[in-house]
Structure formats: C-alpha cells, structure tokens
C-alpha cells in the first residue's frame, strides 16, 4: 500500500520557515491531528534541546506537556519533522534508530541550499525507511 502525506500549504510553509529560522541548527516539531484521521492539522514547533547542527532532541518536559495535551484532545502526532542543515532530506541512521511511531509521517527538511526547499516524507517502521509522496492540499 502506497501511503501519501496530505498536508496543507500553510502548514508545509510553517515547517520550512521554522527550519530556515533555526538554521544552522536543526529544527524539530510535530503536527498533531485527530487520532486515526491521518490529517496533520495543528502545527507545534518545538525546542531542539541539543541546539546542534547535527543532532536534535525534543526537550523532555516540553514533550510531556504536548503529548498530554494531544492525549486530552484525542490527537496524535501525525507528522514528526526535523531539518538537516548540511545534508539531504533523508533519514540518517540516528533518525531510524529513534523512530518509535510506526503510524507517523517522518518529515525531513533540508536547509543546505538557501534558494531551494527540500521537503520529503517517510514511514520508518522496524528500521525500514519508505519514502512516500507528499500531496499539498
């Protein structure tokens, strides 16, 4: 089954803007949506606790707060995004080793080229990477 990430233009643009703003550090965040809907609706930029050009990690206390709020609203992280700032928008081995949400779309943005946006989406399940088409709606 080929899965597709359907995301609205405004949310896509917000993810790219966040990545550009935090460049040369990696940026990260989630887009929440109703559980089971596969619709990314609520853009939530997060702190990169590592503040690094080669690593990212959600701040653990911010993550707890946001995950609880999603749970209370019957939402889930539909998109989990982060940026690579000097390499292509493709999951690294580190990204794969941490990927713990088989239902999520893992979005990678690269900011290596200031004039060209790279925005790609993947499923990462049990260590396997599968790129999926992105449909802007």
């Amino acid at each position: 089954m080929v899965r597709v990430l359907r995301i609205d233009r405004a949310t896509r643009d917000e993810i790219i803007a966040h990545a550009r703003r935090d460049h040369p550090d990696e940026a990260c965040g989630v887009v929440a949506g109703p559980a089971g809907s596969d619709r990314p609706e609520r853009f939530i930029p997060m702190e990169n606790a590592e503040r690094s050009p080669t690593f990212y990690r959600f701040d653990s206390l911010e993550q707890l707060k946001i995950w609880r709020a999603m749970d209370d609203a019957d939402e889930e992280p539909v998109v989990i995004y982060h940026s690579h700032t000097a390499t292509e928008a493709y999951p690294s081995r580190t990204d794969v080793s941490y990927a713990a949400e088989p239902g999520a779309h893992y979005v990678l943005v690269s900011t290596r080229d200031p004039d060209r946006d790279e925005f790609r989406s993947y499923r990462i399940v049990e260590g396997q990477i599968a790129e999926e088409p992105v449909e802007i709606v």
């Binding site: 990696e26 990260c28 690593f55 990690r57 653990s60 690579h84 690294s92 580190t94 990204d95 941490y98």
Partner: peptide
C-alpha cells in the same frame, strides 16, 4: 514516552 531525537550526524 518514546524519546524523539535524531539528526544528520550519522550520515556525516
């Protein structure tokens, strides 16, 4: 909660 982390270092 699963820690959410990663980054490009392993590629580099």
């Amino acid at each position: 909660l699963p820690a959410v982390a990663g980054g490009s270092a392993a590629v580099a």
